[in-house]
Write a protein that binds this DNA or RNA. Structure first.
Ligand SMILES: [Mn+2]
Ligand SMILES: [Mn+2]
Ligand SMILES: [Zn+2]
Ligand SMILES: [Zn+2]
Lengths: 132, 132
DNA sequence: CAACAGATTAGAATTATTCTAAACTGAGAT
DNA sequence: ATCTCAGTTTAGAATAATTCTAATCTGTTG
């Protein structure tokens, strides 16, 4: 109920009406992959008064505070992932649908070391799905 | 010299001036990762007369004919990869730079089977780089 | 409550990309 | 070589996701 407020406070984000609305949709549910538009539609469907710009602002704020992770899998739009632990994805290009793959299911061997002056920040694996 | 023409003919693409210009830039060189804009700039830098729409058209045509592969790694823009063999990438988000990782360097174990009705078309791994 | 930094907002702007519809051109047929 | 036409190119308009602007509002702190 007010755990959302705590999440926000712990991240030095003011618990405003809009951030709480979004927080409820994102963090009460199990893991979700949303886009700015899908979240905006979900908010409007529940009679919430919010602007699209705020949805974008909030998603970006949440990302900066590591409450969300950006997923770039499709050029059309950016996905935001409530699962911030390292993990991988199936992606259905036709349905535009992301499905988590638990990190510890998968073992990756032989990754070369990063070019000098660089380090590997994150390894993401995307298994693209097609019908049949 | 006319191997580009052959590549185009073999793909049932008319060897027009514009496609040959682009083919030379893409297929004579070693593996390249370009965006529509970067390729357009490269063409204009060499005094070539071509429109941006044609660059987009040609990149898409080349993709359909499997002469190029699309890489979605950054929400900003789409990359086109002259390396059409399955392989993986380093990506430097700060420099917007893709680096190939040979497929056979890397072994991936434990990939779950695709959801029913779906199959895995392609597995791509992206190792995001940061400074230091 | 007063004050103000931080947040929200509508709408304009930006950017990559796609679309449109008219002009052009490569290649096969005559 | 010329004719013909489907395929291609093109400029510019349109689209769509996202960002920006600058005015208004609100949560928090004193
Ligand atoms: Mn886009
Ligand atoms: Mn975009
Ligand atoms: Zn996920
Ligand atoms: Zn590559």
């Amino acid at each position: 109920m007010n755990s959302i407020k705590n999440i926000l406070r712990n991240s030095s984000l003011r618990p405003t009406k809009q951030r709480i609305m979004i927080g409820k949709l994102l963090f009460n549910d199990t893991n979700k992959h949303v886009t700015a538009e899908s979240l905006y539609r979900e908010l409007k469907a529940s009679e919430q008064k919010i602007s699209l710009a705020t949805v974008y602002n909030t998603l970006h704020d949440f990302c900066e505070k590591k409450l969300l992770k950006k997923v770039n899998v499709d050029a059309e739009k950016v996905y935001f992932d409530t699962n911030t632990n390292p993990h991988h994805h199936f992606y259905s290009d036709s349905e535009k649908l992301l499905i988590d793959i638990s990190k510890d299911k998968i073992k990756i061997h032989g990754l070369p070391k990063a070019p000098k002056g660089k380090k590997i920040k994150d390894v993401e694996l995307i298994a693209h799905l097609s019908d049949s």
